[in-house]
Amino acid sequence: MRPLLLLVASVLLSAILLAEPGWPQIAPRQLSRLLHEPVPPLLLDIRGRGAYLAGTLPQALNAGTDPAGFLPDGRGGDVVLISDDSVERERLAAWIRRLTNAHHRVFILQGGVAAWRAAGLPLVQAEQNYVRPGTVPFIIPRGLCEGDEPAQEYR
């Protein structure tokens, strides 16, 4: 009986934790350091397209606003949600559930984008986080070593 009770209690407890402030958070400075690690967390911006395009964290990706329509790759790992006051608590809770069920460890950026900016950390234009290859028509090199003039004196 005991283990079962414990299980029920822990499920209840985690449900309460999820519904209340007490979600694992990460401070802007700490996150900024993690971005330089070999395997940094995945940064998901859930504020929607408009806010995302206006300026976001380096490496942050637009995850849309709909947790139900979000499908992770199944490899798990740490995720940091980039949100702000515009994201309601229920929606945030739904995001956390969705990602936790997909074996991610989820953190929320403490104080959202405002706190990041207040910490003096840089925001970037969203397109800097993506590449758009193919915008320039290009020719695939035919040879292995076609650029054979040294570019510059090494300094």
Binding site: L42, R49, L61, N62, A63, G64, D66, G69, F70, L71, P72, D73, R75, G77
Partner: peptide
């Protein structure tokens, strides 16, 4: 290493790959 996710936007599905 690759990471990827799919998301919906309106009636579109977008794949993001890093």
């Amino acid at each position: 290493t690759l990471r990827a996710f799919l998301r919906s936007e309106g009636d579109r599905t977008l794949a993001t790959v890093t």
